[in-house]
């Protein structure tokens, strides 16, 4: 008899465990059952089921009933409860634009769907949602509906408008700059180049270098006159702003004659340029004193024609 009682007890416990494992429980709740018209609240579902079971949720469209609308469908949130059970929670944001008391009907969840189309089901409890309107003070005059109130602009919204304008204006500006540089036959990207020394400083430095090379003393007379005339052409071009490097000697003299220079200096320049042409193009070999006089003329020319403003700056 005692043994029989023990057996019965074991069978009862196993049966209870088995029933517990098969159980599917569904619960619906609402954050608040009293809202103002147009206000929103959450409709929550919590499904507790065995892991192994497949439960079919009811299909929600955009409404629950003719008075209750679904604003947003939340994602399913699954939590493992242990002992072969899981909890699946879902949130639906609902609202209503009619006043009154509305029932959220019981929702059926289907499981244990078999091949002979029989199934088990579990339903939620039905809920009541009270939708209230605002109390209207009829003693006061009615006012018109207010317009849509604009939100204040954020920095990002301002930048989203301003930045493209700045970018477009910048591109147009760069386009104009690039076109002008292109037309003037100058490189487009030279804004970051180092500023050049003044024309006279550059010329004197180049003349010093030329002197140190001792070219004519080493029989490189042609190179000596070529370099000398190149230095002076560059100086004249920068100092008087005419393209001396692309001009022939007679053109340079013609242009210098129009500048405020002494007659002697122009005549001496002409003489040196003619000598240079003879050396460069006619294999002429002047005497040493002529070669020396040529560089002396160059120093003298630069010193007597350098811009006065530069002297003033140096004095300061």
């Amino acid at each position: 008899m005692k043994i029989a009682k023990i057996y019965l007890g074991i069978i009862f416990i196993l049966a209870c465990i088995s029933l517990e494992a098969q159980e599917v429980r569904i619960k619906a709740s609402i954050d608040t059952n009293r809202i103002l018209i147009g206000d929103q609240t959450n409709l929550n579902f919590e499904l507790i089921q065995p892991k192994s079971k497949t439960v079919i949720w009811p299909i929600f469209t955009d409404t629950i009933s003719s008075h209750i609308e679904i604003v947003q469908k939340g994602k399913l949130d699954t939590v493992d409860l242990g002992s072969g059970k899981i909890s699946i929670r879902a949130k639906y944001l609902i609202t209503s634009f009619d006043s009154g008391s509305f029932t959220i009907p019981a929702m059926e969840f289907i499981y244990d769907l078999k091949s002979d189309s029989t199934f088990s089901k579990s339903a939620t409890n039905s809920l009541l949602l009270n939708v209230n309107t605002l109390a209207v003070d009829t003693t006061k005059a009615f006012k018109d509906i207010k317009g849509i109130k604009g939100e204040p602009y954020t920095i990002w919204e301002i930048l989203r408008i301003v930045l493209p304008i700045i970018l477009i204006l910048g591109l147009i500006g760069f386009g104009i700059y690039a076109y002008r540089r292109y037309k003037a036959n100058k490189p487009i990207f030279n804004m970051f180049t180092k500023p050049l020394p003044s024309a006279d400083v550059e010329a004197i430095s180049s003349l010093n270098e030329l002197k140190d090379k001792n070219l004519w003393q080493n029989n490189a007379i042609k190179s000596y006159y070529s370099e000398l005339t190149n230095i002076m052409r560059r100086y004249i071009e920068r100092r008087y702003d005419f393209p001396a490097q692309e001009m022939v000697s007679s053109e340079i003299i013609g242009s210098l004659s129009n500048e405020d220079l002494s007659k002697d200096l122009v005549e001496k320049t002409e003489e040196i340029l003619q000598t240079s042409d003879l050396v460069k193009f006619a294999k002429y070999e002047p005497l040493g004193n002529v070669n020396d006089a040529a560089i002396k003329w160059a120093y003298n020319f630069v010193n007597s024609t350098k811009e006065i403003t530069q002297d003033k700056e140096a004095e300061k």
Partner: peptide, 10 residues
């Protein structure tokens, strides 16, 4: 002249 200078080319 017995030699050519850039003026001649131009």
């Amino acid at each position: 002249r017995g030699y050519v200078i850039p003026e001649d080319v131009r």
